[in-house]
């Protein structure tokens, strides 16, 4: 028996669970998000456009997307390396290191922000050793974003590496492939979707990141001001129209990235099954 959009089942509670889910989701997420878009609709188009393309906003996009891109690339490379080492090699303290990878998920971003600033400020442990300025420059922002993004690539690549059957690599070797050929022709094609997904996840997280960045950034308009901070600044000046316009621009970008990530994951599982 099939009624409309739901297949019949003996299990009870669908109405209650679904009703609760949809109500809660609508009240807390969908309606507030829709409210933001509606609020921006009360602005005139030139007003909206002028805000999101003002020189200061454009400069903040350059800083935000530039540092996020570099950080996500660094995370992709180092994340693959860490995932490889954790799944393939046995060494003392491996389980401890494995748990530590998730620290950036567990540590409040504000704590990460002040800790990184202390390390990379001109008088800090690392800041003192290097001949150039790290904190209060885009380089400092990138470092904070690398910290935040560490777990994403590691945790998406790790399960895929674990699932690759050893027979596959043995076959490659027995057919005369050297280790590098096996890695590039057998292992890499299998983990490539996961690396890309991890890269996209860490990029998406970096673009919206606030807490860990604002301490180390120095927050100079046009040079080290990220878009989320610009939104907060507008809000503190009671410029609600400006804050809303920038927020809508950011939401559109976030949703676009969410769709991309979903597509990547779908591609990854399809390749996995094939």
């Amino acid at each position: 028996m099939k009624i409309g959009w739901k297949r019949w089942s003996v299990l009870p509670g669908f109405g209650l669970a679904m009703g609760y889910t949809l109500t809660y989701l609508s009240l807390l997420v969908l309606i507030p998000l829709a409210g933001t878009f509606l609020k921006s609709a009360t602005l005139t188009w030139p007003e909206f456009w002028e805000t999101i393309t003002s020189p200061r906003a454009l400069a903040s996009y350059r800083v935000t997307f530039g540092t996020s891109l570099v950080a996500a690339l660094l995370n992709a490379v180092s994340g693959l390396l860490v995932a490889w080492v954790l799944t393939r090699y046995r060494f003392f303290g491996r389980r401890f290191v494995d748990a530590l990878v998730d620290l950036p998920f567990a540590l409040p971003t504000a704590v990460a922000g002040i800790a990184l600033t202390a390390i990379y400020a001109p008088t800090g442990w690392v800041g003192k050793l290097v001949p150039f300025k790290v904190a209060f420059t885009p380089l400092g922002i990138t470092i904070a974003l690398v910290f935040i993004g560490v777990p994403f690539v590691v945790r998406t690549v790790q399960p895929v590496l674990e699932d690759i059957e050893p027979e596959l690599e043995q076959v490659a070797a027995s057919l005369g492939a050297n280790r590098w050929q096996t890695f590039t022709r057998v292992v890499m094609p299998a983990v490539w979707p996961a690396v890309l997904t991890g890269f996209a996840l860490s990029f998406a997280r970096a673009v919206g990141e606030y807490g860990s960045v604002i301490f180390i950034a120095g927050n100079m308009p046009m040079r080290t001001e990220i878009t989320p901070l610009l939104i907060v600044t507008q809000l503190e000046q009671y410029n609600y129209a400006g804050a809303t316009s920038l927020a809508v621009a950011m939401l559109v970008v976030s949703f676009g990235m969410l769709l991309t990530i979903n597509a990547l994951q779908w591609w990854g599982t399809r390749r996995h099954l094939a």
């Binding site: 997420v29 919206g208 989320p228 907060v232 939401l251």
Partner: peptide, 8 residues
């Protein structure tokens, strides 16, 4: 909510 910036 995971893909929305905390500030937003």
């Amino acid at each position: 909510p995971f893909s929305v910036s905390p500030v937003v």
